[in-house]
Design a binder for these strands. Structure first.
Lengths: 225, 225
DNA sequence: TATTTTTTTTAGATTTGTCTAAATTTTAAA
DNA sequence: TTTAAAATTTAGACAAATCTAAAAAAAATA
């Protein structure tokens, strides 16, 4: 029942791939975890024996329902700790991801329950990502990357990738944060960049294709959440 | 510069032995860490190569000044987290040691600095043990075990061993805590037990020899601290 | 001091998680 | 559809941290 840090990291990486709608292939996992594909194959076999994955050689993997449950518990811990670091310890949001990567592996249940209560049972982390509840139920986000937002449709930033500290620094610098309202004025197919208008700013700003892929927005009209 | 969890555990165990005035022998370390003596020998060699220990075969070890510095940083982290768990998350004090054993290995310096500030730069942890400062300076305690306190000398509980959760549970149950004032009324050489009087209680209570060894007191007269 | 007991170390094995290099399988391209 | 490229797996090695069993050294006892 207690999983190693390595096992947990694999489970979380696979969960993230799945939740992004991607196929959890050996290479994709190896990129995310910065290990060699051969190492991934070994671990996939191990996790399959523990009934956490469905795996067939050369065919990638999916989480079993047990695997999903465990992954969601890890994600919950990660996001609660991120919330703690930002709200209580006043860390700038772009510094918290790496620390939370370490804290998330401490799995004492009453620690997490108390932390959750202490934070006031937050629904999302500082990046806007939803925090799974104790039972592993997570509010699915109806979010789209900024890169697919139609021009002139008002939207609000709901989440940003928390994987890249440089990204977070850039956003902080430009004072772009969760909740910022915006719309796309014009998109340039030459390089995928876009001109966007941030609500309450006079100057419009230009965002690159990479940046548009890393910012996720909710459109205002359909009332999810 | 980054040490493994195993290495840190050895350093801390050795530091504790030294700070209790004991000889850090292979067997003593192996008992504290619940590993076999052969494993200890291996690790002592490794830490010696890293210049954290002075070690001569069959002669036990001492920490080098670098080793001491690292140990104190670990102890600082441990005790700060214990404070957090009790003061902020409202854990009963006897549950925090094991969790802090995990948290202490996360060594991000700005995390610890912020945690310290958040807690109001506490001087002691919930068990009464002093917290080393950022530079590794620790306030030496002039404390004696209750078992050596002369009869009828008033004293105040300054610390208890945090290693044993059963002990802490017992103390909590009997409402004995840091700061509790007491004196020994009578000691029985038959079994080392003692009758003690707690200030503000009508009933005197009996403590076993083991318990007297695990409670550390300061006498009121000499103004240390 | 000689002998026994205890402590410590050595030697060799095991587990976990990783790696490289080579072989195999799948996918894409010609 | 054959071939080339890419992805994946196998085979074998390695480092870290542990173990058991046996040997050696130190300490205690007779």
């Amino acid at each position: 029942m207690p999983y190693t840090t390595a096992e947990e990291n694999y489970l979380k990486a696979i969960w993230k791939l799945e939740s992004e709608g991607l196929h959890a292939s050996t290479n994709a996992i190896s990129e995310r975890l910065k290990t060699r594909p051969a190492s991934v194959t070994d671990m996939l076999k191990k996790l399959t024996e523990k009934k956490l994955l469905h795996y067939q050689s050369h065919r990638g993997v999916q989480l079993t329902s047990e695997g999903k449950k465990i992954s969601l518990a890890i994600v919950r811990r990660h996001r609660l700790w991120e919330s703690f670091l930002v709200e209580k310890l006043q860390f700038p949001w772009h510094e918290v991801h790496d620390i939370a990567e370490e804290l998330e592996h401490i799995s004492n249940p009453s620690l997490i329950e108390r932390l959750d209560r202490y934070l006031g049972q937050p629904k999302t982390d500082p990046h806007g990502d939803p925090i799974p509840d104790k039972e592993g139920i997570i509010k699915e986000q109806r979010q789209i990357p900024l890169s697919t937002l139609p021009a002139n449709q008002p939207a609000r930033i709901a989440a940003v990738s928390d994987r890249n500290s440089d990204l977070l620094e850039l956003l902080t610098h430009k004072k772009i944060q969760i909740g910022t309202e915006l719309k796309v004025l014009k998109r340039f197919s030459f390089d995928g960049s876009a001109e966007i208008q941030l609500k309450g700013r006079t100057q419009k700003i230009t965002v690159s294709a990479q940046l548009s892929d890393s910012i996720f927005v909710k459109t205002e009209n359909h009332a999810d959440n």
